[in-house]
Amino acid sequence: MALIRPYGDTLNDGKIQLSFTLPLPCDALGEETAKAFAHKMGIENVSVVHSEALSEGYSYYIVYGTLTHQVDPTSLTVTEVETTAMSKEAIEAYIDTHFDRDLVFIGASTGTDAHTVGIDAIMNMKGYSGHYGLERYKHIKAINLGSQVDNETLLSEALKHQADVILISQTVTQKDVHIQNLTAFIELLEAENVRDDFIVIIGGARINHALAKELGYDAGFGPKKFAFDVASFAVLALHEKKKVN
């Protein structure tokens, strides 16, 4: 057992900050309601440090307090991509040693999603935050199909280019539109009997590995993951697959 609370400036002082809007006018009753919500969350010594009217009938609160709940982190399990990330150079060398050809990565932002920022961060030459994208990798042929690519097109392009890895980016997650779309792609692969022909990876700001596994993907990458994270997982998984076959 190693129970902890959030940290303000003293171990286990439980200090926590919240901000939220209530559909109430900004007045004493609004403030009292904000406090009541904090109490229900297990927060004590609630202090509404700021309140403001946003509009007729809506008010905004910033609240501090002491969280009474405790959590034992050792009792929790997390699903994370377990392979170790290699550098760009190490990945290039790995492909050189373990494969007798270049690897093909095909990617797209699929469904109705018009955002390319995620797939571009991983695939484009420039990459993101100082980490080059897959286009710049030796021994990787990176094909970025852009946005609003439907699942059927992605699969037919993947087959046409004999892709080893399929990357799918989903940015719009309002009302879980991405779940339907991602599920449909796996179903398509299974219907066409080609699920095992590819390593299939998803990414996006609201994507994580646990979700990816749940939906039947090989891996999922969320924020702060770069081309080398994705490529490391992919080349190791491809090598595993090669050994099995």
Binding site: S55, Y58, T112, Q148, V177
Partner: peptide, 19 residues
């Protein structure tokens, strides 16, 4: 939009549904 206008917004854009 009404709430934003009352807070000082001069221009309101209604973003279109994706697709």
């Amino acid at each position: 939009a009404k709430s934003a206008a009352k807070k000082g917004a001069d221009i309101i854009a209604v973003i279109r549904t994706t697709g």
